[in-house]
Simulated assay, not measured.
Amino acid sequence: MSKRRYNNYNNDFYHSKEWKQLRLQALERDLYQCQECLKQGKHTFASTVHHIVPLRADKSEALRVDNLETVCASCHNLLHPEKLKGIKAKKRVNRVHKLRGVVFHANPKN
């Protein structure tokens, strides 16, 4: 049985030589800086490479370096809220939003 952390249909892709080379190219291009944090004027070390157009949406974009951006773990979690499960994960996302100044308001009653 596989001991991989995530068991999904993209495991083989993310362990391929092509992906590893392209991932390193994106990290070096972005100087290991989170591109989402940079948009807010923050400099954050990052080691995660994110597909802007997800693999599930368009597999032809999988190995295009201009479809990749380097992001920190916090930003990657915000970009993929569907992957977070459980109350602790939801609290973590809310805490990150709060630190970034994002405020959620309840819908007004009609």
Rank of each mutant, 00 (worst) to 15 (best):
L99K: 15
V49G: 06
S74N: 15
S47Q: 15
Q35D: 01
S2R: 07
K3V: 05
S60M: 03
L27N: 13
C34M: 12
G41K: 03
H80N: 12
N107H: 10
L63N: 09
Q35K: 14
E36S: 12
V103H: 08
A106Q: 11
R4M: 09
T70L: 08
A89G: 03
T44Y: 11
V71F: 07
Q33Y: 10
S47G: 15
K88V: 02
L63M: 01
P54S: 06
R4A: 15
L84N: 11
E18A: 15
P108A: 08
D12W: 03
E18G: 02
V53P: 02
W19V: 00
A73K: 10
A46P: 04
Q25T: 12
L27Y: 14
T70Q: 05
D12K: 13
C37I: 08
L99C: 09
T70A: 04
L79S: 10
V93D: 12
L24H: 03
M1I: 08
A26D: 03
F45R: 12
N7A: 14
L78Q: 05
D58R: 08
N7D: 14
P108V: 05
D66V: 00
T70P: 02
N11W: 02
M1R: 11
K42R: 14
N7L: 14
H51S: 04
P81Q: 00
S2A: 01
P108L: 12
A26R: 12
H80F: 04
L78M: 07
C72Y: 05
K109E: 15
C34N: 07
E18H: 07
H50G: 05
N10A: 10
V93T: 14
E36H: 13
E61L: 00
T70E: 04
A106C: 04
A106L: 11
R23D: 01
H105C: 02
D12Q: 06
L55G: 02
